[in-house]
Every structure is written in C-alpha cells, then in structure tokens.
C-alpha cells in the first residue's frame, strides 16, 4: 500500500508535464494545420500565423515549472496524496486548456485570414483560455506550498 501511495505521488509530480505536453502537442498541431491552410490562401503575413500557432506550447512550460516545484517538496508518504491530487488535476487542466486554445487559435487564424484587421481581436478568446491555464499553474504552486507546510 505504501508503495502505491509513493507511486501515485510520483504520478502527481510528473502529470503536469506529461499531460501538458499532450495538450500542447495537440493544440499546436491543430493551430499549425490551420496556419498551413491559411498560407495557401493568402499572399503575405505568414509569420503571424506561424507565431500565433505556437500559443498552446505555454502549457507544457507551466507543467515543467510545476513538476520541479512539486518534486522539490519530496515524495514521501505524507506528501504523496497531496502531490497526486494537485499534480494530476493541474495536468488535466493544462491539457484541456492547450487543446481548446489550439482550436481557438485555429478559429483566429481563419478569421484573420479573411479579415486581417481583426487579427488582434480574434486572438482574445485564445488569450482568455491561456488565463485559465495560468490560474491552474499559479494555484498549483500556492497549494503545493501548503503540502510542504
């Protein structure tokens, strides 16, 4: 039983990176595909499409920071349940936010391709999704400190 609890603790430590990476990969892929499609239809402004399609990559970076923070607390019987809960749920939040951010970015690329003047505004939904990922990131760090305490 103790071994299982320790294993779950490690799952919690690594989940933000693993799930964040899955989400970022899917999100960047979707946005990147939209960027490639848009490039076939426009004569200029390719750079901004490629640039914005990298937006969902931030979630895996948040995951890495959380992983180092949580692993710094040490995986022990006392900390493992807390690490598992915080790490897994944060990872899920990061994964979904990256996937849906990718879709929001794809919609933004599609809209700004047809109407370049709305480029800035069309990124707003993707930026709002980013905000939710930041919430999960910040509060994972805050709650992590309570495990240590």
């Amino acid at each position: 039983m103790e071994q299982l609890i320790i294993a779950l603790g490690w799952v919690g430590v690594f989940a933000p990176v693993a799930l964040g990476a899955v989400g970022s990969a899917i999100g960047c892929s979707v946005a990147g595909q939209a960027a490639c499609g848009a490039m076939l239809d426009v004569e200029s402004g390719y750079g901004k499409f490629v640039g914005v399609s990298a937006m969902p990559s931030s979630q895996v970076i948040y995951g890495i920071v959380i992983m180092f923070t949580l692993s710094g607390l040490g995986v022990a019987l006392a900390t493992a349940p807390g690490l598992f809960g915080i790490g897994l749920l944060t990872g899920i939040a990061l994964m979904y936010s990256a996937i849906y951010q990718g879709q929001a970015v794809a919609a933004s690329i599609n809209a700004s391709k047809n109407k370049p003047e709305v480029f800035g505004l069309s990124i707003a939904p993707a930026a709002i999704v980013e905000g939710f990922a930041v919430f999960a990131f910040v509060f994972a760090l805050v709650m992590g400190q309570q495990i240590a305490g």
Partner: peptide, 14 residues
C-alpha cells in the same frame, strides 16, 4: 477530425 483544419482554412471565405 483535426486534419480538416488545413483544408478548411485554405479555402477562401464565401
């Protein structure tokens, strides 16, 4: 399903 993104964004708006 995600593979339709490239095609659909490559089509000009009607």
């Amino acid at each position: 399903e995600s593979a339709y993104y490239t095609l659909l964004t490559s089509l000009p708006h009607i």
